[in-house]
Design a protein around this nucleic acid. Structure first.
Lengths: 135, 135
DNA sequence: CAATCAGTTAACGTTAACGTTAGTTGATGT
DNA sequence: ACATCAACTAACGTTAACGTTAACTGATTG
């Protein structure tokens, strides 16, 4: 635990991703860790929280591009009016998208439950028929 | 509308995807349309429903691999016991995954709403401060 | 019947999100 | 002091999910 921050392998251990992945997120601008004199990366608690958010987004099937837009809300320069407006606009868009997905997923869940029930019923019938067979 | 089925461009128009995409889904085994004598593809209502399900899954961020597993439940040979068991097992796995995603998305929604509210408050303050400026 | 059109195959190209390998450097235990 | 890490950069490789282009075929229409 380098002077109050995390090394890359700390995060690798904690989140179960590779160092390449973490560096890649930096490459595309999702993370901006500080460096020691020797060029080693140091991740702050803020960086760690960001990474956690990125990985949550990925598990939900969002692209890194979408995640980048989402994260932007947390990175607004508190004196820049234009940034607030754009950030909030984007955030509302994503909020709508999230809600849409929740509804769609619920719909899919219902369909799947129904299909499972029907399939299980058919399966029971098959088993019963097998039981009645003389051979 | 070729003898009671859909042509590929019917589906292209209806769903707003390219013909390449539809053929690709066939390439990887997600669709199996019949053919006319002249090799032209004809999609049944069943094929069309499948495509719809595939596209729904994609909009939810599932991979075609995951979608393929999901669809499998609808394609069980009603005499094959082993298929029922595997299909149902997979279906339950996916059901759990869908429910997990719903919960995670709700969580994300809450976080986002909170962040938006806070950002909007800061934004209002910024506007107010700008109003008080003499210049 | 020539030409246009919708559809087809085959093959190579592209982008996102990393994996993998090689070669280098700064820190560390013995 | 030496070797062994852990981390670094740079560059090429890989997979999924298509896009794009070329060259062909069958049907249709003026």
């Amino acid at each position: 635990m380098l002077q109050g921050g995390y090394t890359i392998s700390d995060l690798v251990r904690e989140f179960g991703v590779t160092a390449r992945t973490i560096r890649y997120y930096e490459e595309i601008g999702l993370l901006k860790p500080h460096r020691t004199a020797g060029q080693q990366r140091i991740y702050s608690r803020r960086d760690r929280a960001r990474l956690k958010l990125i990985l949550r987004g990925k598990l939900l099937g969002f692209s890194l591009q979408e995640i980048a837009e989402l994260i932007q809300l947390y990175e607004i320069d508190p004196t820049a009016r234009r940034q607030y407006e754009e950030g909030l606009k984007l955030a509302h868009k994503h909020l709508a998208e999230i809600r849409r997905r929740i509804e769609e997923l619920k719909h899919l869940e219902e369909d799947l439950v129904e299909a499972i029930q029907q399939t299980e019923a058919e399966y029971q019938k098959l088993i019963a028929d097998e039981g009645h067979q003389k051979h």
